[in-house]
Design a protein around this nucleic acid. Structure first.
Length: 114
DNA sequence: CATCTGACGACCG
DNA sequence: GCGGTCGCCAGAT
């Protein structure tokens, strides 16, 4: 499974904004839902300029553990994201992803009539 | 090939 | 609001 579309969308997240695994999965119509998004992030290659720290759990909760948790917090605060302990102000920072990524009406699941 | 685990989410108590 | 459980899928052992 190539998580390319996932990384692409994550890279599009503007500074000071965050996305949830669920929203990410929904926006791309990933199979398996949020878990798929989570796995994609877990496999995020470093050094690609992917702002993985801008991806948080539902309601902006930081799900990952250390040492990434503290790192993520620091990075988010550095971008001006309002942090509430282990959560971000999802009401303000939740970013609305562009429909259809940045391509045409790309369909994630062609739906095979079986 | 079988089994466990894992950057999740929704639901229930 | 928090913790425990189930569902879901793919990769690792």
């Amino acid at each position: 499974m190539s998580w390319d579309p996932v990384y692409r969308l994550v890279k599009l997240i503007p500074r000071g904004r965050v996305l949830t695994y669920g929203s990410l999965a929904r926006a791309l119509r990933l199979r398996g839902g949020a878990r798929a998004a989570g796995r994609a992030m877990a496999a995020t290659p470093s050094g690609k300029g992917i702002p993985w720290h801008r991806v948080v759990g539902e309601r902006g909760k930081l799900l990952i553990r250390e040492p990434y948790a503290s790192l993520q917090r620091k990075l988010l605060e550095s971008e001006g994201v309002t942090l509430r302990e282990s959560r971000v102000d999802i009401n303000i920072c939740h970013w609305h992803p562009p429909l259809g990524k940045s391509s045409t009406t790309n369909r994630k699941k062609p739906r095979k009539s079986k």
